[in-house]
């Protein structure tokens, strides 16, 4: 989770992000950020996500759970 939070902070252009942060609360949460999450999931976790799946997450932790569930599957 720690590594994931660092990656998410970079994508969202923040110093740090927390698990319960709402994604829509970030000004930078847009299609570019979503594609960056798709690329990060592929490179760091070996998981393939669609933009639609990424955009369905409400919080940073939701996103982590989505990726973790795919990795376990």
């Amino acid at each position: 989770m720690d590594e994931f939070l660092v990656e998410m902070a970079e994508i969202l252009e923040e110093d740090a992000v927390g698990p319960s942060d709402e994604l829509d609360g970030f000004e930078s949460w847009d299609s570019l950020a979503a594609l960056s999450v798709v690329a990060m999931a592929d490179a760091q976790f070996g998981v393939r996500m669609s933009s639609q799946e990424v955009r369905s997450a409400e919080t940073v932790e939701d996103l982590y759970q989505l990726i973790s569930a795919k990795k376990a599957a």
């Binding site: 847009d30 299609s31 594609l35 798709v38 592929d42 996500m49 955009r55």
Partner: peptide, 23 residues
């Protein structure tokens, strides 16, 4: 939903699908 404007006469690309396809 992302604020892009296009018509059915325009090219449309599913960016994340194409990215995952290539990778």
């Amino acid at each position: 939903s992302e604020g892009n404007f296009r018509a059915l006469d325009n090219l449309i690309m599913d960016g994340s699908a194409v990215f995952n396809f290539v990778m």
